[in-house]
């Protein structure tokens, strides 16, 4: 594997008495696609949210492109970053939510323009031209001036992907991007992700689409009980799992 783009080391996270992550390690190479599978409650989403610091890990650390997320290394101590610095770091990490979370009062174009314009402070004309190109790339050039509520779920998720891409992120994180969609709309969103993978975008995709993981992912990670149970190439993890829990999970979903 080439230089790691995302590095997760020994991350623990509890919500009250509930221990969601119990020491997770994960390495994602630049240009690689990692699919994270596992039963609900296994900590997949929390892991993803720790990567861009929407959740703060109790122990362990996350680094993206060699830069520690949420902390600065001092001598023998980690300094917690100020919110403004964390926001700046997040601009390099694209995040696509299960429920899209588009801004309903803004048009599709305004949704895409907002972050490059006001998080990165890039010039308006340039940002808008690029946003239109991104909407075109996800097949929604004609929906630029439409509000999200007038779009189908699949279209909304594609706008959300364009919104995340507008920051030119080093890595894209997908939190179950197709789980809130009607079955016939899943394909159009997966097509977009497939194109991104072909273009060499580094991605971590939490998903329940086993077939998609097999086809697109370079690495499949299986999580259960807040730990990574096993990881490896799809052919190995999906077709010849070494762990009983992986096998049981795959038997249930396939």
């Amino acid at each position: 594997m080439s230089t790691p783009m995302v590095e997760v080391r020994g991350v623990h996270k509890s919500f009250g008495a509930l221990e969601v992550l119990r020491g997770v390690d994960l390495t994602v190479g630049a240009g690689h696609v990692t699919a994270v599978l596992g039963p609900s409650g296994s900590g997949k989403s929390t892991l993803l949210r720790c990567v861009n610091h929407l959740e703060r890990a109790d122990r362990g650390y996350v680094a993206v492109d060699g830069e520690l997320i949420g902390y600065r290394r001092g001598r023998g101590v980690l300094h917690e970053l100020r919110e403004r610095q964390i926001l700046r770091q997040r601009a390099a990490i694209g995040f696509v939510f299960q429920n899209f979370h588009l801004f309903p009062h803004l048009t599709a174009l305004e949704n895409v323009v907002e972050a490059p314009r006001f998080a990165l402070r890039r010039p308006a004309a340039e940002v808008e031209a690029e946003a239109r190109a991104l909407l075109d790339r996800v097949g929604l050039a004609d929906k630029a001036d439409v509000h999200p509520r007038r779009l189908s779920g699949g279209q909304q998720q594609r706008v959300a992907i364009a919104r995340a891409l507008a920051l030119r992120p080093k890595v894209l994180l997908f939190d179950e991007p197709t789980s809130a969609l009607d079955p016939e709309l899943v394909g159009e969103v997966l097509d977009v992700i497939r194109d991104l993978a072909a273009a060499g975008t580094t991605m971590v995709v939490v998903t329940h689409e086993i077939g998609f993981a097999r086809e697109v992912a370079d690495t499949v990670v299986f999580m259960d009980g807040g730990r990574v149970v096993e990881s490896g190439p799809p052919a190995q993890v999906l077709d010849a799992p070494r762990h009983e829990r992986t096998r049981a999970f795959l038997d249930k979903v396939l």
């Binding site: 997040r90 907002e114 972050a115 920051l167």
Partner: peptide
């Protein structure tokens, strides 16, 4: 919706914005 704030934070928008 809490998700709106999360989405804004995930995009790195400044707090005031």
């Amino acid at each position: 919706d809490q998700g709106q704030r999360e989405a804004a934070a995930a995009l790195g928008l400044p707090r005031g914005r």
